[in-house]
């Protein structure tokens, strides 16, 4: 039987102001997985992570981390978890080396080992040259990487990243993902929430989508992407067109004189689309996805939940 890094059953949370953030969710994350937890703002992602990291108290339900019940074996469960929160939450007046080493101390690491680990992870995240400056002087990307180093100091079996790349430039994002993929390959289970769905699609093997406190999808990424019944492409044309042609097999929409949007159903190949366009005298210079595949599915699932139609 596959070992579970995280097992959630019937989790509910109603805040003091009456807001029902979670309405009885079940969620399993296998050990070693790279798992995406996605959902629109206010869906319940951060509440779920808050409960797993003990910052939020559940109203009902249970959470087990590597078999340890969070309610009855809190310390054993939390020892397995490292978390990178959405908001900056370290002492801005402390030095990165102290922030990371102190976190090791909170997990019971002896001071010497904690400082060695702090050095290791600050170096791995390219922050070692900033180890002795006040943390408030770091750039936004550096602060994010510092929180990853802090979360890794006790070498957790489960790393939770709550929108770690928000506001981070593309180069730093790539280096962060390289690091996280490396630790996942070495055996650490990773749970990721992000608004960059292309990141989730390329990094994660399994996915859950949460909306209005309910899990609306919980499956393998490949299985989910296979459900996509159509993909939208933006086509840049070599010459302007006066009107939108009707080619039958694909619905087209004219964006401007040299741009078309093509809604390609599953089963129709791009060769068929290009052939049909060529027959009407239209040649395509380049094409790109209107949105990435996961984004399309995500929107369709969430809109279905809202009673909308695509």
């Amino acid at each position: 039987m596959t070992e579970l890094a995280l097992s959630i059953r019937g989790l509910e949370k109603t805040y003091d102001n009456g807001v029902k953030a979670l309405r009885g969710i079940d969620l399993d994350v296998a050990a070693g997985d790279f798992f995406a937890l996605l959902g629109p703002n206010g869906a319940g992602k951060s509440t779920t992570i808050g409960i797993v990291t003990s910052l939020v108290r559940p109203t009902a339900g249970s959470v087990r981390v590597f078999g340890h019940d969070l309610a009855t074996q809190r310390e054993a469960a939390l020892s397995c978890v490292g978390v990178v929160p959405q908001e900056i939450n370290f002492n801005q007046f402390e030095k990165p080396i102290d922030i990371v080493a102190n976190q090791g101390g909170f997990y019971g690491l002896p001071r010497k080992l904690a400082r060695e680990r702090a050095e290791k992870y600050l170096k791995l995240l390219s922050l070692w040259d900033k180890a002795e400056v006040a943390a408030r002087t770091l750039s936004g990307g550096m602060k994010r990487r510092l929180m990853i180093a802090r979360a890794m100091v006790h070498e957790p079996r489960l790393l939770i990243l709550d929108e770690p790349t928000a506001g981070v430039d593309i180069e730093i994002r790539r280096s962060m993902w390289q690091f996280v993929q490396g630790i996942n390959a070495a055996g650490t289970t990773v749970i990721l929430t992000t608004h960059y769905l292309e990141e989730a699609e390329s990094l994660c093997r399994n996915i859950a989508i949460i909306d209005k406190g309910v899990i609306v999808e919980h499956t393998a990424m490949k299985t989910l992407l296979a459900k996509l019944d159509r993909e939208s492409f933006i086509l840049d044309l070599t010459a302007p067109i006066e009107a939108c042609p009707d080619i039958g097999i694909v619905h087209l929409k004219r964006i401007d004189a040299t741009t078309l949007e093509a809604d390609v159903p599953k089963g129709t190949t791009l060769n068929e689309l290009f052939d049909a366009l060529a027959r009407t005298g239209i040649r395509v210079r380049s094409l790109r996805n209107k949105a990435n595949r996961l984004e399309e599915l995500f929107l369709s699932l969430v809109e279905r939940g809202n009673g909308g139609a695509r």
Binding site: T53, E75, A76, S79, V81, N89, Q92, Q103, F106
Partner: peptide, 17 residues
């Protein structure tokens, strides 16, 4: 101060009793 800057969470998410 640790509540205000939220770094009290460093301890709260850890197994520190």
């Amino acid at each position: 101060g640790s509540k205000f800057q939220r770094f009290v969470e460093e301890m709260l998410v850890s197994p520190t009793p």
